[in-house]
Design a protein around this nucleic acid. Structure first.
Length: 111
DNA sequence: TGGCTGACTTTGG
DNA sequence: GCCAAAGCCAGCC
């Protein structure tokens, strides 16, 4: 179910909450799921305000390369990486290893 | 109201 | 296969 009534940001947060434990996804995937594939950057922008919400796992969202581009926005320097590693995701040098293995596409999983 | 910015993506060289 | 540039949309100044 897609909460169309909510704003773009709200939708992004909703999807971010739906990301399973130990899984990651890309901004583009979320944007695509929201019907705004061209607004991938906006997804990241939306996540900028997601840090206020504990329910939202912004650290599970990375770019399509699997690179933790948003880690710089986290409190700690390597907080994002540690969080992912805590969930069983192998992260080396700010980049997720075996991205295909951990990748989670909302447009396919949630369908 | 208009213009700049950005945690991206895609395409071209 | 890797580097550089353009595009796109929504929020903010």
């Amino acid at each position: 179910m897609k909460p169309e009534n909510q704003n773009f940001f709200e939708r992004v947060y909703e999807v971010a909450r739906l990301i399973p434990y130990g899984k990651v996804t890309s901004y583009g995937a979320i944007a695509k799921y929201l019907g705004a594939a061209r607004s991938a950057r906006m997804v990241g922008w939306a996540m900028n305000g997601a840090g206020k919400y504990e329910d939202i796992a912004a650290h599970r969202v990375v770019n399509r390369k699997g690179l933790l581009t948003g880690k710089h926005h986290f409190q700690g320097t390597n907080l994002m990486q540690q969080l992912l590693e805590s969930e069983g995701v192998e992260v080396i040098d700010n980049q997720i290893q075996n991205l295909e293995k951990y990748f989670w596409d909302p447009s396919k999983e949630l369908l």
